[in-house]
Write a protein that binds this DNA or RNA. Structure first.
Lengths: 186, 186
DNA sequence: CCGATAAGTCAACAGTTGTTGACCTATGGC
DNA sequence: GCCATAGGTCAACAACTGTTGACTTATCGG
């Protein structure tokens, strides 16, 4: 029976939803506490402070689908994970939103950069593999640029052309750009 | 003789440099005043407040090169304006940095979205023009995704693979993705 | 039933934010 | 010389930030 979550759990859930969408320094501990329905002092009590609470939400990032795929499925999984419809509810649990929302942050930018390098860019390059005239790191960077670029245009810049597109149409657009990234030869 | 700038001018210059790189809510009026070497009260005196000062810096955005070009030169100008080496000095005057740094901001996000739609995405789509099976808005959105995506990977996420690249190498990568964007057919 | 301990509230702290009104201080016209 | 005025400083304000320690309340073992 999980009807009554503990205050700690409610804080963590509220923190994730807010941090992942608005960014670290745009969220106060009082905002989080209010959403969780508890006192703000509990953030320091239970987690040790605002920074530690943010760090705790980072531990909840799931492993990226595309990194467990093989061969051509890597691109297809990557495309899939970036073409879901834009729903503000779901968005609070989207790890890529977290990265975008906090990469600008003056306090957490470095932390996010490290996370991306270690959990996303590095593993992706390793999975793409090297080939003659095909530096894996370059193609990984280009693929990520395409994926995050399309997410940015759709969710943050909210370009009119992308707002109305279905999952399939979006997937086709991202797939076309993703192929160009993976086919790139210097 | 412009040896001694007026306090108003120094405030505007400092505000642009800070707002365009760190983002609106990550900069305090005291930060700006300190950089300008004047009192923070002058921000409200001369501009009417922090928001009005930010708005004043938006008026200094130059017209994007690519929007004055014709035919294939549109892509080439666009590529060029996104492949300059990453220099923190120059960056403070880069309008695309401004857009990236403030699109997340809870207070200024809407303002930036409007700016992009009116000054960038709209004009670009108009310049690309429609053709059978070639919706201009779609291709404009994809091109912008490629451009901003690569800028994001290079300057914000600071991917290792892109840090060492020369202007020509970067231009080649962005050009390859840009072509895929403009060639896209649904 | 009773006391210990966990779970949570409350008020207060010191620091920072944007903004305001009172004040100072050069400069130039008469 | 004098004083009006633009140009600028200073101290203070209310609101908000993260964090702390004292306090209250509920739960449960004996």
């Amino acid at each position: 029976m999980t009807k009554t979550l503990t205050a700690r759990e409610r804080l963590l859930a509220a923190a994730r939803a807010l941090f992942w969408t608005r960014g670290y320094s745009n969220v106060s501990v009082r905002d989080i506490a209010a959403d969780a329905g508890v006192d703000a002092a509990l953030v320091s009590r239970y987690f040790g402070g605002k920074q530690a609470l943010f760090e705790a939400t980072l531990d909840e990032i799931p492993v990226w689908d595309a990194l467990t795929a093989e061969g051509p499925a890597v691109l297809e999984k990557a495309v899939e994970s970036f073409s879901h419809p834009f729903d503000p509810e779901t968005e609070a649990a989207n790890p890529f939103s977290l990265l975008l929302a906090n990469i600008i942050d003056p306090e957490m930018g470095d932390r996010i950069r490290a996370e991306v390098a270690a959990q996303i860019a590095g593993p992706l390059a390793a999975r793409l593999g090297n080939a003659p005239g095909h530096k894996a790191q370059d193609r990984a960077a280009m693929l990520l640029a395409v994926l995050f670029g399309m997410a940015l245009m759709r969710k943050n810049f909210q370009l009119e052309a992308l707002g109305e597109k279905s999952t399939e149409e979006l997937a086709a657009m991202i797939r076309a750009l993703g192929r160009a990234a993976l086919d790139y030869k210097p």
